[in-house]
Design a protein around this nucleic acid. Structure first.
Length: 389
DNA sequence: CGGTAACCTGGGAT
DNA sequence: AATCCCAGGTTAC
Protein backbone atom coordinates (compact mmCIF):
# COMPACT_ATOMS: atom_id res chain seq x y z
CA UNK A 1 0.00 0.00 0.00
CA UNK A 2 0.92 3.62 0.16
CA UNK A 3 3.18 3.20 -2.78
CA UNK A 4 2.46 6.59 -4.11
CA UNK A 5 4.75 6.18 -7.02
CA UNK A 6 6.88 9.17 -6.46
CA UNK A 7 8.49 9.48 -9.79
CA UNK A 8 11.67 10.90 -8.44
CA UNK A 9 13.86 11.62 -11.33
CA UNK A 10 17.39 12.33 -10.50
CA UNK A 11 18.50 15.86 -10.89
CA UNK A 12 20.95 15.98 -13.68
CA UNK A 13 24.27 17.30 -12.68
CA UNK A 14 26.57 19.09 -15.06
CA UNK A 15 30.21 18.16 -15.00
CA UNK A 16 32.04 20.02 -12.29
CA UNK A 17 33.69 23.18 -13.42
CA UNK A 18 37.24 22.31 -12.70
CA UNK A 19 39.16 25.47 -12.28
CA UNK A 20 42.75 24.93 -11.48
CA UNK A 21 43.58 27.69 -9.15
CA UNK A 22 46.24 27.61 -6.60
CA UNK A 23 45.26 28.67 -3.17
CA UNK A 24 47.20 31.37 -1.58
CA UNK A 25 48.73 30.29 1.72
CA UNK A 26 45.85 30.91 3.96
CA UNK A 27 45.56 28.88 7.14
CA UNK A 28 47.33 31.14 9.63
CA UNK A 29 46.98 28.97 12.72
CA UNK A 30 50.14 26.98 12.28
CA UNK A 31 49.12 25.20 15.39
CA UNK A 32 45.58 23.95 15.23
CA UNK A 33 43.44 25.51 17.91
CA UNK A 34 43.20 23.59 21.11
CA UNK A 35 39.91 21.90 21.77
CA UNK A 36 37.00 24.15 22.54
CA UNK A 37 38.61 27.28 21.23
CA UNK A 38 35.74 28.85 19.44
CA UNK A 39 37.71 31.06 17.13
CA UNK A 40 37.57 34.78 17.15
CA UNK A 41 39.33 36.94 14.69
CA UNK A 42 40.37 34.75 11.85
CA UNK A 43 39.52 36.97 9.00
CA UNK A 44 40.19 34.42 6.35
CA UNK A 45 36.93 35.12 4.65
CA UNK A 46 35.92 32.88 1.81
CA UNK A 47 36.79 35.53 -0.67
CA UNK A 48 37.22 35.23 -4.35
CA UNK A 49 37.30 31.51 -4.54
CA UNK A 50 35.66 29.67 -7.34
CA UNK A 51 31.94 29.41 -6.89
CA UNK A 52 30.57 26.46 -8.81
CA UNK A 53 26.89 26.02 -9.70
CA UNK A 54 25.08 22.94 -8.41
CA UNK A 55 22.00 22.90 -10.61
CA UNK A 56 19.75 23.17 -7.58
CA UNK A 57 17.13 25.90 -7.37
CA UNK A 58 15.86 27.42 -4.16
CA UNK A 59 12.74 25.31 -4.54
CA UNK A 60 14.87 22.18 -4.44
CA UNK A 61 17.25 23.38 -1.76
CA UNK A 62 16.74 26.29 0.57
CA UNK A 63 19.89 26.66 2.64
CA UNK A 64 18.24 28.58 5.51
CA UNK A 65 15.47 25.99 5.75
CA UNK A 66 17.78 23.01 5.58
CA UNK A 67 20.91 23.75 7.58
CA UNK A 68 19.89 25.67 10.70
CA UNK A 69 16.68 23.76 11.35
CA UNK A 70 17.80 20.90 13.53
CA UNK A 71 19.00 18.19 11.17
CA UNK A 72 22.64 19.01 11.66
CA UNK A 73 24.43 21.21 14.14
CA UNK A 74 27.73 21.17 12.30
CA UNK A 75 27.12 23.78 9.59
CA UNK A 76 27.79 27.43 10.29
CA UNK A 77 26.23 30.53 8.83
CA UNK A 78 29.41 32.16 7.54
CA UNK A 79 27.82 34.95 5.49
CA UNK A 80 24.32 36.04 4.52
CA UNK A 81 22.63 33.09 2.81
CA UNK A 82 25.86 31.13 3.12
CA UNK A 83 26.57 27.99 5.13
CA UNK A 84 29.89 26.23 5.63
CA UNK A 85 30.58 22.67 6.65
CA UNK A 86 32.31 19.40 5.88
CA UNK A 87 31.22 16.62 3.54
CA UNK A 88 32.79 13.31 2.71
CA UNK A 89 34.72 13.38 6.00
CA UNK A 90 37.26 16.00 4.99
CA UNK A 91 36.00 18.33 2.25
CA UNK A 92 35.45 21.78 3.73
CA UNK A 93 33.12 23.86 1.61
CA UNK A 94 30.58 26.66 1.59
CA UNK A 95 27.16 26.78 -0.01
CA UNK A 96 25.27 29.91 -0.92
CA UNK A 97 22.31 31.16 -2.89
CA UNK A 98 22.78 33.36 -5.90
CA UNK A 99 20.42 36.26 -6.52
CA UNK A 100 18.09 34.03 -8.52
CA UNK A 101 18.02 31.47 -5.72
CA UNK A 102 20.23 28.89 -7.39
CA UNK A 103 22.70 27.16 -5.14
CA UNK A 104 26.43 27.14 -5.71
CA UNK A 105 29.40 26.03 -3.66
CA UNK A 106 33.06 26.71 -3.19
CA UNK A 107 35.73 24.40 -1.91
CA UNK A 108 38.05 25.51 0.87
CA UNK A 109 40.16 22.41 1.18
CA UNK A 110 43.65 22.51 -0.21
CA UNK A 111 42.68 21.23 -3.62
CA UNK A 112 45.24 18.55 -4.12
CA UNK A 113 44.22 17.87 -7.65
CA UNK A 114 41.25 15.67 -8.25
CA UNK A 115 39.85 16.22 -4.84
CA UNK A 116 37.42 18.71 -6.28
CA UNK A 117 35.63 15.99 -8.15
CA UNK A 118 35.49 13.88 -4.99
CA UNK A 119 34.18 16.80 -3.01
CA UNK A 120 31.42 17.51 -5.49
CA UNK A 121 30.36 13.89 -5.51
CA UNK A 122 30.33 13.83 -1.73
CA UNK A 123 28.33 17.05 -1.64
CA UNK A 124 25.63 15.82 -4.01
CA UNK A 125 25.39 12.66 -1.98
CA UNK A 126 25.13 14.64 1.25
CA UNK A 127 22.38 16.78 -0.23
CA UNK A 128 20.33 13.80 -1.40
CA UNK A 129 20.47 15.53 -4.75
CA UNK A 130 18.97 12.56 -6.54
CA UNK A 131 15.66 13.09 -4.81
CA UNK A 132 13.34 15.68 -6.34
CA UNK A 133 11.62 17.71 -3.68
CA UNK A 134 9.20 19.24 -6.16
CA UNK A 135 7.80 15.92 -7.31
CA UNK A 136 7.49 14.66 -3.77
CA UNK A 137 5.81 17.76 -2.41
CA UNK A 138 3.29 17.73 -5.23
CA UNK A 139 2.13 14.35 -4.00
CA UNK A 140 1.99 15.51 -0.39
CA UNK A 141 0.14 18.63 -1.32
CA UNK A 142 -2.47 16.73 -3.30
CA UNK A 143 -3.41 14.77 -0.23
CA UNK A 144 -3.04 17.50 2.35
CA UNK A 145 -4.21 21.06 1.87
CA UNK A 146 -2.40 22.29 4.96
CA UNK A 147 0.85 20.82 3.73
CA UNK A 148 0.30 22.53 0.40
CA UNK A 149 -0.06 25.90 2.04
CA UNK A 150 2.95 25.44 4.29
CA UNK A 151 4.94 24.29 1.28
CA UNK A 152 4.21 27.53 -0.50
CA UNK A 153 6.04 29.43 2.22
CA UNK A 154 8.77 26.96 3.10
CA UNK A 155 10.01 25.73 -0.25
CA UNK A 156 13.30 23.87 -0.40
CA UNK A 157 13.28 22.32 3.07
CA UNK A 158 15.29 19.23 2.25
CA UNK A 159 16.37 16.14 4.17
CA UNK A 160 20.12 15.61 4.20
CA UNK A 161 22.04 12.35 3.95
CA UNK A 162 24.59 12.66 6.70
CA UNK A 163 27.34 10.39 7.87
CA UNK A 164 25.70 7.90 10.25
CA UNK A 165 28.29 8.11 13.01
CA UNK A 166 28.30 11.89 12.96
CA UNK A 167 24.52 11.93 12.95
CA UNK A 168 24.30 9.49 15.84
CA UNK A 169 26.60 11.47 18.09
CA UNK A 170 24.85 14.72 17.29
CA UNK A 171 21.45 13.38 18.20
CA UNK A 172 22.75 11.75 21.34
CA UNK A 173 23.39 15.33 22.39
CA UNK A 174 19.91 16.47 21.45
CA UNK A 175 17.78 14.79 24.07
CA UNK A 176 15.78 17.17 26.21
CA UNK A 177 18.02 19.97 25.08
CA UNK A 178 17.94 23.17 23.12
CA UNK A 179 19.55 24.16 19.83
CA UNK A 180 22.06 26.54 21.35
CA UNK A 181 23.47 24.07 23.82
CA UNK A 182 23.34 21.16 21.37
CA UNK A 183 25.44 23.24 19.01
CA UNK A 184 27.94 23.98 21.74
CA UNK A 185 28.25 20.32 22.57
CA UNK A 186 28.62 19.28 18.95
CA UNK A 187 31.29 21.94 18.54
CA UNK A 188 33.20 20.38 21.41
CA UNK A 189 33.00 16.88 19.92
CA UNK A 190 34.01 18.26 16.54
CA UNK A 191 37.09 19.87 18.03
CA UNK A 192 38.40 16.34 18.66
CA UNK A 193 38.58 15.69 14.91
CA UNK A 194 41.28 16.70 12.46
CA UNK A 195 41.58 20.43 11.93
CA UNK A 196 40.64 21.59 8.46
CA UNK A 197 40.82 25.38 8.52
CA UNK A 198 38.97 28.63 9.17
CA UNK A 199 36.13 30.24 7.29
CA UNK A 200 34.77 33.52 8.49
CA UNK A 201 34.74 33.53 12.26
CA UNK A 202 34.73 29.76 12.61
CA UNK A 203 37.31 27.01 12.68
CA UNK A 204 36.33 23.73 11.10
CA UNK A 205 37.25 20.16 11.92
CA UNK A 206 36.51 16.84 10.34
CA UNK A 207 34.15 14.96 12.60
CA UNK A 208 36.23 12.72 14.88
CA UNK A 209 36.50 9.08 14.02
CA UNK A 210 35.18 6.51 16.45
CA UNK A 211 38.71 5.92 17.62
CA UNK A 212 39.40 9.62 18.13
CA UNK A 213 36.18 10.01 20.07
CA UNK A 214 37.03 7.01 22.23
CA UNK A 215 39.93 8.99 23.68
CA UNK A 216 37.66 11.41 25.52
CA UNK A 217 36.47 10.59 29.04
CA UNK A 218 33.05 10.94 30.58
CA UNK A 219 34.45 13.45 33.03
CA UNK A 220 35.84 15.57 30.22
CA UNK A 221 32.44 15.58 28.59
CA UNK A 222 30.72 16.48 31.82
CA UNK A 223 33.17 19.28 32.36
CA UNK A 224 32.33 20.46 28.88
CA UNK A 225 28.68 20.71 29.85
CA UNK A 226 27.20 17.52 28.44
CA UNK A 227 25.37 16.65 31.63
CA UNK A 228 23.94 13.16 31.75
CA UNK A 229 24.47 12.79 28.00
CA UNK A 230 28.15 12.26 28.72
CA UNK A 231 27.54 8.67 29.72
CA UNK A 232 25.39 8.13 26.62
CA UNK A 233 28.32 9.14 24.43
CA UNK A 234 30.81 6.98 26.26
CA UNK A 235 28.44 4.02 26.40
CA UNK A 236 27.59 4.25 22.72
CA UNK A 237 31.23 4.62 21.72
CA UNK A 238 32.06 1.50 23.74
CA UNK A 239 29.18 -0.42 22.20
CA UNK A 240 30.30 0.57 18.72
CA UNK A 241 33.88 -0.41 19.39
CA UNK A 242 32.73 -3.88 20.33
CA UNK A 243 31.29 -4.47 16.85
CA UNK A 244 33.48 -7.02 15.05
CA UNK A 245 33.25 -5.28 11.70
CA UNK A 246 33.96 -1.87 13.20
CA UNK A 247 31.46 0.54 14.66
CA UNK A 248 31.27 2.99 11.81
CA UNK A 249 30.94 0.17 9.29
CA UNK A 250 28.26 -1.44 11.41
CA UNK A 251 26.30 1.80 11.45
CA UNK A 252 26.65 2.28 7.72
CA UNK A 253 25.52 -1.28 7.08
CA UNK A 254 22.15 -0.40 8.60
CA UNK A 255 21.35 1.43 5.38
CA UNK A 256 20.53 -1.92 3.81
CA UNK A 257 18.00 -2.92 6.46
CA UNK A 258 14.29 -2.31 6.86
CA UNK A 259 13.20 0.54 9.07
CA UNK A 260 12.08 -1.63 11.96
CA UNK A 261 15.39 -3.44 12.02
CA UNK A 262 17.25 -0.16 11.85
CA UNK A 263 15.30 1.20 14.80
CA UNK A 264 15.85 -2.00 16.78
CA UNK A 265 19.57 -1.98 16.12
CA UNK A 266 20.00 1.67 17.01
CA UNK A 267 17.90 1.28 20.14
CA UNK A 268 20.47 -1.10 21.61
CA UNK A 269 22.81 1.87 22.01
CA UNK A 270 22.60 3.74 25.31
CA UNK A 271 20.90 7.09 24.96
CA UNK A 272 19.10 6.10 21.78
CA UNK A 273 15.33 5.95 22.20
CA UNK A 274 12.57 6.00 19.59
CA UNK A 275 12.94 9.64 18.67
CA UNK A 276 16.70 9.74 18.34
CA UNK A 277 16.68 6.45 16.44
CA UNK A 278 14.19 7.85 13.95
CA UNK A 279 16.30 10.97 13.47
CA UNK A 280 19.39 8.92 12.71
CA UNK A 281 17.41 6.62 10.42
CA UNK A 282 15.93 9.53 8.46
CA UNK A 283 18.90 11.89 8.36
CA UNK A 284 21.64 9.38 7.66
CA UNK A 285 20.41 5.86 6.92
CA UNK A 286 18.18 6.29 3.87
CA UNK A 287 15.02 5.58 5.84
CA UNK A 288 12.91 8.18 4.10
CA UNK A 289 9.75 7.09 5.85
CA UNK A 290 11.20 7.24 9.35
CA UNK A 291 9.22 9.79 11.35
CA UNK A 292 10.87 11.28 14.43
CA UNK A 293 8.06 11.88 16.89
CA UNK A 294 9.03 14.65 19.25
CA UNK A 295 6.96 17.08 21.21
CA UNK A 296 6.29 19.21 18.14
CA UNK A 297 5.24 16.34 15.92
CA UNK A 298 3.19 14.85 18.72
CA UNK A 299 1.34 18.12 18.95
CA UNK A 300 0.80 18.24 15.20
CA UNK A 301 -0.40 14.67 15.13
CA UNK A 302 -2.94 15.22 17.88
CA UNK A 303 -4.19 18.32 16.19
CA UNK A 304 -4.39 17.35 12.56
CA UNK A 305 -4.07 13.60 12.18
CA UNK A 306 -5.07 11.66 15.28
CA UNK A 307 -7.38 13.96 17.24
CA UNK A 308 -8.64 10.98 19.21
CA UNK A 309 -5.29 10.83 20.97
CA UNK A 310 -5.56 14.24 22.52
CA UNK A 311 -5.00 13.77 26.20
CA UNK A 312 -2.72 10.78 26.14
CA UNK A 313 0.99 10.95 26.72
CA UNK A 314 3.69 10.01 24.31
CA UNK A 315 4.50 6.39 24.99
CA UNK A 316 6.65 4.29 22.67
CA UNK A 317 3.56 2.54 21.41
CA UNK A 318 1.75 5.74 20.56
CA UNK A 319 4.97 6.99 19.10
CA UNK A 320 4.77 4.14 16.63
CA UNK A 321 1.14 4.81 15.99
CA UNK A 322 1.88 8.41 15.10
CA UNK A 323 4.68 7.34 12.80
CA UNK A 324 2.40 4.85 11.10
CA UNK A 325 -0.24 7.51 10.66
CA UNK A 326 2.30 9.70 8.92
CA UNK A 327 3.32 6.90 6.60
CA UNK A 328 -0.31 6.14 5.81
CA UNK A 329 -0.93 9.76 5.02
CA UNK A 330 2.26 10.71 3.20
CA UNK A 331 3.70 7.44 1.93
CA UNK A 332 7.23 6.24 1.64
CA UNK A 333 8.77 9.68 2.02
CA UNK A 334 6.76 10.47 5.13
CA UNK A 335 9.90 11.57 6.95
CA UNK A 336 10.39 14.36 4.43
CA UNK A 337 6.85 15.53 5.06
CA UNK A 338 7.48 15.45 8.78
CA UNK A 339 10.52 17.62 8.28
CA UNK A 340 8.49 20.39 6.70
CA UNK A 341 5.77 20.19 9.32
CA UNK A 342 8.41 20.29 12.04
CA UNK A 343 10.10 23.34 10.57
CA UNK A 344 6.77 25.10 10.43
CA UNK A 345 6.63 24.71 14.20
CA UNK A 346 9.97 26.33 14.88
CA UNK A 347 9.63 29.76 16.44
CA UNK A 348 12.51 30.94 14.30
CA UNK A 349 10.63 30.09 11.13
CA UNK A 350 7.19 31.35 12.01
CA UNK A 351 8.01 34.76 10.71
CA UNK A 352 7.90 33.20 7.26
CA UNK A 353 4.34 32.11 7.77
CA UNK A 354 1.06 34.01 7.78
CA UNK A 355 -0.39 33.91 11.24
CA UNK A 356 -3.33 31.74 10.29
CA UNK A 357 -0.87 28.90 9.78
CA UNK A 358 0.52 29.11 13.26
CA UNK A 359 -0.46 26.20 15.41
CA UNK A 360 -1.46 28.38 18.29
CA UNK A 361 -0.89 26.88 21.68
CA UNK A 362 -4.34 26.71 23.14
CA UNK A 363 -3.52 27.93 26.52
CA UNK A 364 -6.11 30.49 27.33
CA UNK A 365 -6.23 30.19 31.11
CA UNK A 366 -9.95 30.65 31.09
CA UNK A 367 -10.44 27.27 29.53
CA UNK A 368 -8.03 25.08 31.36
CA UNK A 369 -8.59 26.28 34.85
CA UNK A 370 -10.17 23.03 35.88
CA UNK A 371 -7.89 20.64 34.16
CA UNK A 372 -5.49 20.32 37.03
CA UNK A 373 -2.80 22.13 35.17
CA UNK A 374 -0.82 24.00 37.70
CA UNK A 375 0.06 21.24 40.10
CA UNK A 376 3.74 20.58 39.78
CA UNK A 377 4.29 18.42 36.81
CA UNK A 378 7.45 17.71 34.95
CA UNK A 379 5.43 17.88 31.79
CA UNK A 380 6.26 15.17 29.38
CA UNK A 381 3.97 17.15 27.14
CA UNK A 382 0.99 15.49 28.71
CA UNK A 383 -1.02 18.63 28.54
CA UNK A 384 -4.22 16.86 29.10
CA UNK A 385 -7.19 19.03 28.51
CA UNK A 386 -9.53 16.07 28.40
CA UNK A 387 -8.36 13.95 31.32
CA UNK A 388 -10.70 11.07 30.64
CA UNK A 389 -10.52 10.63 26.94
C1' DC B 1 2.12 -2.08 29.32
C1' DG B 2 1.21 2.88 30.97
C1' DG B 3 2.44 6.50 34.12
C1' DT B 4 6.22 9.06 36.62
C1' DA B 5 10.36 10.88 38.29
C1' DA B 6 15.14 11.69 37.74
C1' DC B 7 18.70 13.17 34.80
C1' DC B 8 22.52 18.07 33.47
C1' DT B 9 22.47 22.76 31.99
C1' DG B 10 21.57 27.49 30.73
C1' DG B 11 18.58 31.07 29.16
C1' DG B 12 14.31 33.39 29.44
C1' DA B 13 9.97 34.26 31.88
C1' DT B 14 7.61 35.21 36.19
C1' DA C 1 16.94 37.85 43.17
C1' DA C 2 14.78 33.40 43.51
C1' DT C 3 12.18 29.98 41.00
C1' DC C 4 10.09 27.93 37.50
C1' DC C 5 9.83 26.38 32.90
C1' DC C 6 11.50 24.61 28.76
C1' DA C 7 14.49 22.66 25.38
C1' DG C 8 13.44 18.03 18.80
C1' DG C 9 14.22 12.54 25.30
C1' DT C 10 15.87 8.31 27.56
C1' DT C 11 16.04 5.35 31.35
C1' DA C 12 14.67 3.06 35.45
C1' DC C 13 11.04 2.05 38.59
Amino acid sequence: MNSLNLRLRAIQVPPPVMKRKRQSPKPPPSTPPTPQTQARHSKTAAKSRDWVPLNLTREELSLPLTFPTGQTFRWKNTAPLQYTGVVGSHHLLSLKHLQNGDVCYCLHSRSDDGSHSDARTALLDFLNAGVSLADMWKVFSDSDARFAELARHLGGARVLRQDPFECLIQFLCSSNNNIGRITKMVDYVSSLGSYLGPVGDFHFHAFPTLEQLSLVSEQQLRDAGFGYRAKYIIGTVNALQSKPEGGEEWLRSLRKLDLQDVISALSTLPGVGPKVAACIALFSLDQHHAVPVDTHVWKIAKRYILPELAGSSLTPKLCNRVAEAFVTKYGKYAGWAQTLLFIAELPSQKTLLPSHLWTTEQKSPAKIEDSGEEVGKKSNCSRSIFPLL
